[in-house]
Simulated assay, not measured.
Amino acid sequence: MPPSTAPTLRQQRLGTELRKLRERAGLTSTAAAQLLGLKQAQISNIESGRYAVGADRVRTFASSYGCADPAFVDALAAMTGGRQRGWWDEYREHLPATLIDLAELEHHAVGLRVALIVHIPALLQITDHARALFKQVAPPMQQYEMEHRLAHRIKRQGVLHRENPPPYTATIHEAALRMGFGGPAVARAQLQHLIEMSELAHVTVRVIPFGADHFPSTGQSFDYVEGPVPQLDTVQLDTHHGGCGFLDAEAQLSKYRSVLDLLEPCALSPAESRDFIQRLIRDI
């Protein structure tokens, strides 16, 4: 099978983690190839995500590299099998690859934590609110592109409504709640939707009011996607050019985990947040 020219983020991440294990073992790709009975080019293609690799081979790699973390090895083995098609693949020809990767990332997540300053979380947006946002992007989208992005965003929300959904915690600043995208009627409907979603057992919505005397954030919104083990977590950053930035270095993950751990207690409790949002609805 020829190597893939467009590996998914999930395939790339598996290769990256195998490369990290090799490097921690003090092996060059050439030495690893000799140890494993492969060609150096095969090692390179596997580590770049361009070659699909099976679970048994991943376990062999991990054993040869001296990895003694069975939970981590099991998690890596579960990422094998090549590209698995999901609903997001129908958008692959219409949307940037990063948006497709984000949907797949959320699909496999065991937990989701988000922090937003001026926007409602994408997974909690109603259709009219999302449409109003897409109408404001620069440069303007073509109508067909807007509809593809809108449909993709709404389908992403299915992760919160499926059987055994991941726990989802959204910490939202009051500034985002007061944005009137789409006009008063849409703003009221969006806030009411937040209240309804926050009543689901696996969804937690917490508000940081303007009156909060501090919160540990530089104003950047981000999603923290939890993998089956902490080493496979991912941070997703929105970028001004319309795509998604993904971070997975251990130091980066540790930093953003710390930000969330400090940020969430600065917010109102879930019950207080629902009451707060309800008061905002009355003021619109």
Rank of each mutant, 00 (worst) to 15 (best):
V58R: 07
V58K: 08
V58T: 08
V58N: 06
T60Q: 13
T60S: 12
F61K: 09
F61T: 03
F61Y: 15
A62Y: 04
A62E: 03
Y65F: 15
Y65A: 06
C67H: 10
C67A: 13
A68I: 09
D69Q: 02
D69P: 00
A71M: 08
A71L: 11
F72R: 08
F72T: 05
F72K: 08
V73E: 03
V73R: 03
D74E: 15
D74T: 10
A75H: 15
A75I: 10
A75K: 12
L76V: 07
L76I: 04
A77D: 11
A77M: 13
A77L: 14
G81E: 00
G82H: 01
G82V: 00
R83M: 01
R85P: 01
R85N: 03
G86W: 07
W88D: 08
W88I: 10
W88V: 07
D89R: 06
D89C: 10
E90H: 09
E90N: 09
E90R: 09
Y91H: 07
Y91T: 00
Y91V: 03
R92C: 05
R92S: 11
R92V: 08
R92G: 07
E93N: 14
E93Q: 15
E93F: 13
L95Y: 08
L95Q: 02
L95S: 05
P96W: 02
P96S: 07
A97P: 11
T98H: 03
T98I: 01
T98R: 03
L99I: 09
L99E: 13
D101S: 09
A103K: 12
E104S: 00
L105D: 06
E106Q: 14
H107F: 14
A109T: 02
A109Q: 03
L112V: 08
R113F: 05
